[in-house]
Design a protein around this nucleic acid. Structure first.
Length: 635
DNA sequence: CGTCTTTGACCTGCGC
DNA sequence: GCGCAGGTCAAAGACG
């Protein structure tokens, strides 16, 4: 909806290095690289062309040197005739001018096509959303008509299966043991259940949320998480519905005290630890701006860190169970570690949905892994798959709770210490140690030894490379020394594009031969032209790597959801923090930050494309087609 | 005066 | 049982 605006906005901005979500892919393979070695994005092509009109002989030569080099060479050659020189100089310039105009025309055409594609995508998205809402309503009606007490366990199983299939839509939903009451709660808080869609703005919100893993559906997300944990921690425990009463929303210790009446509950409580999402980011402000309202309710000096840890609770809703802890890193005071716990049970402002979705998705993912682990205590081996696609290194591992098992992934960036009782995902948005990740962003999801880890490594490496040992592919990050927030976000943006396409690819891979898979991947690869495609022996490895990742992704929709939310949040969070930082430190970059935030929104739409391929829904005729044609178009 | 922050006290879980 | 550490409460103070 806003995408065309974003694109044109980005195009109008001649000086910015921003690239919109739509802008980067289709044209960037044509743009190749600019002469300074930066991998300029698609939109920048138009920018540079417009720039070139003012400084034609320089810019065009740089940009299209591979086309105009002979003429340029001629112009610089010594000549005995001044008139000939003038003619020689004039002709190349006219040619270049015409070439530039032709390019502009092409780009305009591309732009129009993209707009058409975008409108198609939006239509698909809207229809998908309507489909989703319809299913939800049906689901609610069906559940209301059922007797909750007699079929609680059946429902629980069904819900578990459903959750496995469609986490993105069920993050905020609860176990069925308390479904009726949750339905009531949802009626109170959900925008969906009131009129099915809410007003336009809320509809938009809901749309975003639907893609952002159901933040709007979170009245009982926390409880949902807890139920999952209960089920996982005690194999056959269904849990007392009382405990899951959604009206009893985790008012911390008081509630816990009152509910800790029975031994069962106590034993369950000991296992009932909330998943946490920890974000490490460089931030000068006392707390990171994440779009939510927080009230500080405590401060404590934690062991091993001279910096006090501050405790905040969400004040958007008085009953919101979400807490966050903020603490500066002991090693680097400029790093702010923000740990989120719980899920919001109220509508969120758009600026806050990203982080909320991450916490929900991450919690859900951790929980699901935990429950998976619980299913087999004896023969637990780490199930892992790791891949690094176009700079995005994501891996999943199901670690046994037996801490003796080797840490399948260890990341020097995940220095946050967590209690063993809390599964924690750490999103590291700080610059990594140069020896490991080059100069910039490594978004690392990690966890403590007892819980599954997911790593998103937006690592920057000097060049693309395939790590045979780790079965990961490191690809070149497009920034060099100027690590502006905008660059950061742009890269996250592009990574998201690529992951989105990869997820699409993953879906398709069910029906594809591995070779096609690889081709699809290659087709989806855009800019970094120099290192790709890899040599044949690396192609095989890459195919295996992608197949491995695809298997992981396709076999675990929860991971898809969590990944989507995490990435969305990654950009969104960065948008928030980056905006803050930019505002505080680099006022002249403000427009870049805002554009980046818009780009982040664009990413959500991109994820919508990916989600249109969700097997739950029949693939719309344009679903995959849109994404793939859009992607292929640019290759 | 209402809201938010501060801070000491208290509670709980865990290891020894 | 004791001590420690993490987490929370709630009264007091600060602030607008």
């Amino acid at each position: 909806m806003e995408m065309p605006k974003r694109r044109s906005k980005a195009m109008e901005n001649n000086n910015t290095e921003e690239n919109s979500f739509l802008g980067n892919t289709p044209v960037e393979d044509k743009t190749k690289k600019s002469d300074d070695g930066h991998d300029e994005e698609g939109t920048s092509m138009e920018m540079e062309i417009s720039k070139s009109s003012s400084s034609m002989d320089i810019t065009i030569q740089g940009r299209h040197g591979w086309l105009a080099e002979p003429e340029q060479t001629n112009t610089s050659m010594p000549s005995s005739s001044a008139g000939k020189d003038r003619a020689l100089i004039k002709h190349p310039q006219e040619k270049e001018l015409q070439s530039a105009k032709a390019k502009m025309g092409e780009v305009k055409e591309e732009n129009e096509k993209l707009k058409l594609l975008l409108s198609q995508i939006v239509r698909n998205y809207q229809s998908l959303q309507m489909h989703f809402l319809g299913l939800l309503q049906k689901d609610e009606e069906a559940k209301k008509s059922m007797d909750p007490s007699s079929s609680a366990r059946d429902q629980s199983n069904e819900q578990d299966e459903e959750a496995d299939e469609l986490v993105s839509l069920s993050l905020g939903r609860s176990s069925s043991t308390d479904q009726p009451r949750k339905d009531e709660q949802m009626k109170k808080t959900s925008h969906f259940s009131k009129n099915g869609k809410g007003d336009d703005e809320e509809g938009l919100n809901g749309a975003g949320l639907a893609l952002e893993l159901g933040c709007r559906f979170e009245p009982a997300a926390d409880q949902s998480t807890e139920v999952v944990m209960k089920n996982s921690s005690s194999d056959n425990s269904c849990g007392d519905p009382k405990e899951d009463d959604p009206t009893e929303i985790w008012p911390p210790s008081k509630t816990l005290r009152t509910t800790r009446s029975g031994d069962d509950e106590v034993s369950q409580q000991t296992h009932l630890k909330k998943a946490r999402v920890s974000v490490r980011a460089r931030c000068d402000a006392p707390t990171m701006h994440d779009g939510c309202q927080w009230r500080k309710y405590g401060q404590k000096i934690a062991k091993g860190n001279p910096c006090p840890r501050a405790y905040y609770r969400c004040t958007v809703s008085p009953s919101c169970p979400v807490r966050k802890q903020v603490q500066r890193c002991a090693d680097d005071m400029s790093i702010l570690i923000t740990t989120y716990e719980g899920s919001h049970n109220h509508p969120l402002p758009m600026s806050a949905t990203a982080m909320a979705s991450t916490t929900s998705a991450a919690a859900s993912m951790l929980q699901s892994h935990s429950s998976t682990s619980q299913q087999d205590h004896t023969a637990m081996a780490p199930i892992s798959a790791s891949t690094n696609l176009q700079g995005l290194n994501f891996s999943t591992s199901t670690l046994s709770q037996n801490s003796r098992l080797p840490q399948h992934f260890y990341f020097p960036n995940s220095s946050i210490s967590t209690t063993n009782s809390h599964p924690t995902i750490t999103l590291d948005l700080t610059a990594p140690s140069p020896s490991h990740f080059g100069r910039f962003p490594a978004a690392v999801f990690s966890s403590n030894p007892r819980y599954p880890s997911t790593r998103l490594n937006f690592s920057s490496s000097p060049s693309s490379s395939l790590d045979h040992n780790n079965n990961t592919l490191q690809l070149q990050a497009p920034w060099n020394n100027n690590h502006t927030a905008a660059n950061y976000l742009n890269y996250g943006n592009r990574v998201l594009n690529q992951v989105g396409s990869t997820l699409n690819m993953g879906k398709q891979s069910i029906f594809q031969e591995p070779n096609n898979l690889y081709q699809s991947y290659i087709q989806n690869q855009k800019p970094p032209p120099p290192p790709l495609p890899p040599p044949p022996h690396q192609q095989l490895m890459l195919t295996e790597t992608i197949a491995s990742a695809t298997k992981t992704i396709t076999s675990n929709p929860k991971f898809q959801s969590a990944l989507a939310a995490a990435l969305t949040s990654f950009v969104g969070t960065n948008g928030g923090s980056a905006t803050t930082g930019v505002r505080e430190n680099h006022h002249h970059h403000q427009h870049q930050s805002s554009t980046s935030t818009e780009s982040a929104s664009g990413l959500k739409l991109k994820w919508a494309e990916s989600l249109t391929t969700n097997p739950i829904y029949p693939p719309s005729p344009n679903g995959i087609g849109c994404a793939s044609s859009y992607l292929n178009k640019s290759s």
